[in-house]
Design a protein around this nucleic acid. Structure first.
Lengths: 212, 212
DNA sequence: GATGGATTTGACCAAGTGGTCAATTCACGT
DNA sequence: ACGTGAATTGACCACTTGGTCAAATCCATC
C-alpha cells in the first residue's frame, strides 16, 4: 500500500488488488450461502460488479478462486488457535481460546460458513489440512490437557471431545446466525448480547471442567 | 410388505411407496452433501436408480422434493425436543434432552446436515418454522429454566445461550462427521467412542450449570 | 382377453453453467 | 504522439440444468 514513487506500477497494481479483492469478497459471500457447487461464477461476478470474463482474468477457474478463499480461512483459524498457547494456566488458556474463537466467528461469519459447507460436502479441498496440520494441532494440545488433568487442575475428560464442544459452540454463532436471528425477534445479536453469550460459554465450560 | 390378497392394490401402492422412499432417501443424501442449489435432480435419480423423468412423476419439482425432506426433519427435531419435558428435575431433563439430541444426530446425520445447509442459505424454507414453532418452544423452555434458576437448582444463566450450546454440540457430531473422522485417524467414531463423547457432553454441561 | 387408469421412460427443450477468445481499451515509459 | 503490455469485455461454446411430453408398458378388474 506504500506508493512512494519508485515502485514500478503503483496505481495499476493498486487497482488490480482492489478488483481482485472485490471478487474475492463477493466469492466468499456466494460460497458461504450456496456452497462450492451451488455458487456460480456469474453470481460472483455480478456481486463484484464486473463482467464474468473479467473474473476469469484474475482467477483462472472457479476452483482456483475457491481455493484462494479457503486458504485464507485456514490461516485465520490457526491465528485464533495460537491464543491457546499463550498462557500456562488452564483457565486462562481456555478463556483466551474460546474468546478468540468466538470473536473470529463474530468478525468473520462467512469464513466459518465456508468451512462448514466444505466439511458438509466431504472436505475435498481441506482434507489434507484436517489430516495433517489440524490433527497435529489437536494431538499436541491433547497432551497439554492431559498434563493439566494429571496435575488435578481440570477434571478428567477426553480432551478431543472438549475441543469439539468449543469448536461446535463458537462455530454455531456464525453458521446458525440466521436461526439465532429468527429466535431473537428477527434482529441479529447486539454486541452486548454477543458479549454475554461469549461470557456464558466461557463460564459454563470452565465450570464444567473445573474439579469440585 | 404384507401382501395378503384382500388389499385393493397392495403390490402396486407398495411398489409406489418403495420407489418414492428410494427417491426420498437419495434426495436426502444429495441435499445433505451439496445443499439445495448444488443438488441436481439427475444425481438424485441416478442414486435412486430410476430415470430422471420418473422422479418428476413422484415429485413435481426439485423444490417439492426438498420440502418433503425438510418437513420430516422438523418432525424428528420436535420428537427429540419433547424429551426435555418428560422430567421435572433439571439434571434429568437436561440429561435426557442432550442424550436424545446426540442420538438423533448419530442416527440421522443427513437430517442434521440438511438443516445446517438450509440455515446457511438463509433458511428460506424453514424460516416460518423457526419464527413460530421453534421460537415458542424455546420461549416456554426458557421459562422453565428460569424457575430452576430461581429455585437455586441451576446456576444463573441466560437459558437461550444454554440451548444454543446444546444444539451446537449435538449438531457438530453430525455436520462435522468428516472432520471428526479425519481427526480420528480416518475412521468414524465407534459406538463406544460416541457413547463416551455423549457422556462427556452431558457431564461437562451439567457440571457447568450446577451451583457450587 | 379386453379395458383403462397407473406407471415408466427416451427424447426433447429453454435456460443456465464454467470457461474461451479475439478484439478493444487503457495507462505508462519513451 | 506513440508503442507496448496489462486489463477489459461482448460474443461465443459445449455441456448441464430442471422440467415436459407423448408414446409405451404395466396390471387389477371385468
Amino acid at each position: 500500500m506504500t506508493d512512494t514513487a519508485p515502485l514500478p506500477r503503483p496505481a495499476r497494481s493498486a487497482g488490480r488488488e482492489l478488483k481482485e479483492k472485490g471478487l474475492f469478497e463477493a466469492a466468499r459471500a456466494v460460497f458461504a450461502e450456496e456452497g462450492f457447487k451451488g455458487a456460480t461464477t456469474a453470481e460472483i461476478a455480478r456481486r463484484a460488479g464486473v463482467p464474468k470474463a473479467n473474473l476469469h482474468y484474475y482467477f483462472p477457474t472457479k476452483e482456483a478462486l475457491y481455493r484462494a478463499v479457503t486458504e485464507e480461512i485456514l490461516t485465520d483459524w490457526l491465528g485464533a488457535a495460537s491464543s491457546f498457547d499463550e498462557k500456562d494456566d488452564p483457565k486462562e488458556a481456555i478463556t483466551a481460546y474460546i474468546g478468540a474463537k468466538m470473536d473470529l466467528a463474530r468478525a468473520d461469519p462467512l469464513g466459518s460458513r465456508i468451512w462448514a459447507s466444505e466439511i458438509l460436502r466431504g472436505a475435498p479441498v481441506i482434507k489434507d489440512f484436517l489430516e495433517t496440520t489440524l490433527a497435529e494441532w489437536i494431538a499436541s494440545r491433547e497432551a497439554i490437557m492431559r498434563r493439566w488433568i494429571e496435575a488435578g487442575k481440570i477434571r478428567p475428560l477426553e480432551p478431543r471431545y472438549f475441543f469439539y464442544m468449543i469448536w461446535a459452540t463458537t462455530q454455531h454463532y456464525a453458521d446458525f446466525e440466521d436461526q439465532i436471528r429468527a429466535l431473537n425477534g428477527g434482529a441479529p445479536l447486539s454486541d452486548e448480547q454477543f458479549q454475554k453469550a461469549k461470557a456464558q460459554v466461557v463460564d459454563t465450560i470452565l465450570h464444567g471442567i473445573t474439579p469440585l
